[in-house]
Simulated assay, not measured.
Amino acid sequence: MGVLFLSLAGCSLGESEYLGGNLNGVNHTSAAINYFKVNGYGGPNISPHGYGGGMCCVMLPREWRPGLMMKVEWEIDPDPYAKIKRKTTGYGFDEEAYAKHAANYQQHTASVPLPPYEEEGLCALEVHFFPCHQVKVTTSCWRYPSPNSPIREPLEMKEPAVCPK
């Protein structure tokens, strides 16, 4: 027991290289974000043209440095308002109808640069999802849709007929 205590105490010495921060998301698309992750840390689901967040925590480097990249993974439901057949008895959806709907879910991954932290320091990580499976992140202390937010694209964006390569 004493050895375990000593080894844990040894781990607590010094300052961690990483800080935990809130993970927020903004969905600028008409699809639902079923879930998203940043560097493996899970975020909330987000309704079409909506917000989700305040999820704890995502780990970010205490000190920002050039070249830092974030791996963002997410799943979308391209038809979030579909009418799915319900069970004839009990509660919930008909399993076959739900499986048919869920077969249209799409998974995406993107690597995006982590922008420099503001003078105030690291406030949170806010992930923005755009049409054509584009993603941006910000560490600004100004949350969207503040006019001071570095991301100013409109919340309700339409998916183009053809996405640029």
Rank of each mutant, 00 (worst) to 15 (best):
N39Q: 06
E73L: 03
A9I: 12
V135L: 03
G14I: 01
S149Y: 00
G14L: 07
T138N: 07
W142N: 15
S111R: 11
N27Y: 00
G50F: 06
E126Q: 15
L114V: 15
N34S: 01
E153I: 01
E126T: 15
C163R: 00
Y41R: 03
D94K: 08
G40Y: 06
Y35I: 00
E156Y: 04
A32L: 08
E63C: 08
M69C: 06
P115M: 01
K87T: 11
E75W: 04
K165Y: 11
E119T: 14
I33G: 09
N39C: 06
R86M: 13
C57W: 10
W74N: 00
E126P: 06
R143T: 11
V162F: 06
G121K: 00
H101V: 04
I76T: 15
E96L: 08
F129C: 05
Q107H: 11
T139H: 06
N24C: 09
L8I: 12
Y117N: 13
A31C: 09
P80F: 03
G52S: 02
M70Q: 15
P160M: 04
E73V: 00
S47W: 11
A31W: 13
L13I: 09
K37Q: 13
M55W: 05
V162G: 01
E126I: 07
L23T: 02
H49I: 07
K71N: 12
P66A: 10
H101E: 03
V162S: 13
L23I: 02
E119D: 13
R62E: 04
C141N: 09
R86P: 04
E126G: 04
P48A: 12
L114Y: 02
Y117I: 05
P80W: 08
P131W: 03
A32G: 00
S146C: 07
A9Q: 10
H108D: 00
R152Y: 01
G121L: 06
A103F: 01
G92Y: 05
P113F: 09
L60K: 12
G121H: 11
A102F: 02
W142Y: 15
P61F: 02
H101S: 01
I46V: 10
V137H: 06
G54M: 07
R143M: 14
K83S: 11
G54T: 00
P66Y: 04
P160G: 10
P44M: 02
Y105G: 00
T139I: 09
D77V: 03
H49S: 11
G2M: 11
C11H: 08
P164N: 01
S47R: 13
S16K: 12
